[in-house]
Amino acid sequence: MLSKRIIPCLDVKDGRTVKGVNFVDLKDAGDPVELAWQYAQQGADELVFLDITATHERRGTTIEMVKSVARQLNIPFTIGGGITTIADAEALLNSGADKISINSAAVRNPSLIEDLAKAFGVQFVVVAVDTKLVNGKNMVHLNGGRLITELETEDWILKAESLGAGEILLTSMDHDGTKNGFDCLLLDKVARSINIPVIASGGAGKVEHFTEVFLETGVDAALAASVFHFGEIPIPYLKSELKKHNIPVRL
């Protein structure tokens, strides 16, 4: 049976992980390779790296980082942040990334999804969508929720699927950082409306939130950052709890 996936997300800047990380046995908490390896040992099913480097030199450092991760890691990983062209994506693919995630570049230029899917296959293309409730409607936002678009979230996701997205990473900006649980209502609607996998993101605070999102919605994976980085929820414990609820996981 296909397992539900648990995915830690790491923010990286200039090839280093940012945000505090609190693993006791880490020699260098800023080293994405060591952190990634640690997560793989703990039983993470996949990793997502979000590159927030703003400088022009970003490509070189990011590619070196991706290569180092690919050399060490024996599980799949996705890299997102600042990918706007086929050439960006190809460089990451050739450096060992399994998938790339595109967000605002896809909103600004939807044909990028199609071009990437044609060039590298749909399995390579994750479309990340940041959503926020505005006047009762779920609207796509850019720039970490600061910039509203004219796109309704559910419509945009349907369009992304039809253009060739292989997976949707849906982050609820209303839930993100609250630790009050995932947006199960929206996630379930989305997961039922499309025929590609959905990763739930935003709001994980405790084990029950993961149980809830897998039992109450049709999502395929759940992503979180701080609860994993600060060791609040150890992945082996999380998975054993999910298993108690008959949620298929990889132990």
Binding site: M1, L2, V122, G166, I196, P197, D220
Partner: peptide
Amino acid sequence: KIPHMGWNNIDHKNNSLFEGVENLTQ
């Protein structure tokens, strides 16, 4: 959902390729 993406267990038939791999491993 398509693609089939993620970890799935396999029922193997003790071929030498799977030596030392527990059955139903993902």
